[in-house]
Design a protein around this nucleic acid. Sequence first.
DNA 1: TTGCTAAACGGAGACACCCTCCGTATTGTG
DNA 2: CACAATACGGAGGGTGTCTCCGTTTAGCAA
Lengths: 187, 187
Amino acid sequence: MNSLRADAVRNREHIADIARQLFREKGYDAVSMDEVAKTAGVGVGTLYRHFPTKEALYDAAIQAWVETVNAAAAKSLAGEGSPRDRLLAWFQAYVEFLTRHKGAAWRITSALGDEGSPFATKCRTYLDANQRVIDALAAEGAMRRDVDAMQLCRLVGGVAAVVDNSDLDAEAAKSMLAVVADGVLAD
Amino acid sequence: MNSLRADAVRNREHIADIARQLFREKGYDAVSMDEVAKTAGVGVGTLYRHFPTKEALYDAAIQAWVETVNAAAAKSLAGEGSPRDRLLAWFQAYVEFLTRHKGAAWRITSALGDEGSPFATKCRTYLDANQRVIDALAAEGAMRRDVDAMQLCRLVGGVAAVVDNSDLDAEAAKSMLAVVADGVLAD
DNA sequence: TTGCTAAACGGAGACACCCTCCGTATTGTG
DNA sequence: CACAATACGGAGGGTGTCTCCGTTTAGCAA
């Protein structure tokens, strides 16, 4: 049923691998499509047949690690400790994911609420995970009533974007996330 | 003593005016230098003699409104109300300033801590204003001890960037800023 | 194996962007 | 009024994303 030719499949995966490596090292803006093509040993035409835009390529490159976010959320929730500790742990994992590839945090956070974006499915994943965390903590009466997942995604995504952009260390990230956590937890 | 020719002064101001208008309407990325030159009725050469880079032009275009931030900080501090209300009012004014020009919030927040950036002086202004607000509230014992101006600039700047990027309304901005405010105020 | 067709390939080049260079035009001073 | 000194304009260099199309190759059928 798969009408793709074997060489096409091979090339597609190879290109995505190379792109993942390059984006991770240098960040979105610093990697050109020509560079990806040359490094992968293919022509730009081939590159563009597999990935119609640079954003689509980026989306494919960061696909794998995004899928693990659900596991991280579940793990944070199952952990021991106070609601604050668990919320903070989740936030930290979330930021770590978002900043894993330079430039990804801002691109994904920017796409929140934009259904047409190539990152829409990733946003959905994040939103859902956040929602589950909120629900779990709310069930214990630990959350304020008026916080919603989108708001939290934006807040934490904003922190992640700043952390990514300014190359802040984990400690600085944690102190900012603590502010957010204290702001959304019930008094 | 001013060695600038009259036509040069005229052109410089005219270009800055046009650029301010264009940037405000369309955002940084969506305005090209060719467009600014054409709209202003000058050649690109002239444009680049007055403003050596696009960022320098942007900096000049947003100069005026940044200078009023100090007044806004003072006003927010002098206002009546609880520490929370006053802090929130300042945050809202801050975000309003940052989002006045599309794209400015992220650019300025990104430049925090980068002394070499063309926006360094604007960052300084914001940092200082935030520091004054923190000091005033801390003197009343309303602030947590461990928050600093840079951290706050980043948090609020991150919110501003998200608000700007997603075209959120004032209400959405306020609810996010309330989270930050509650996170930094003493329990 | 061989022949054929649909699919995939590669890279020249279109277009847009930021910015530079230099011949031309203008200003204002002696 | 002449003549530096200064400012002007726009062609074009370098780099980026993306398209188009002639060429090559994979996979199947005889």
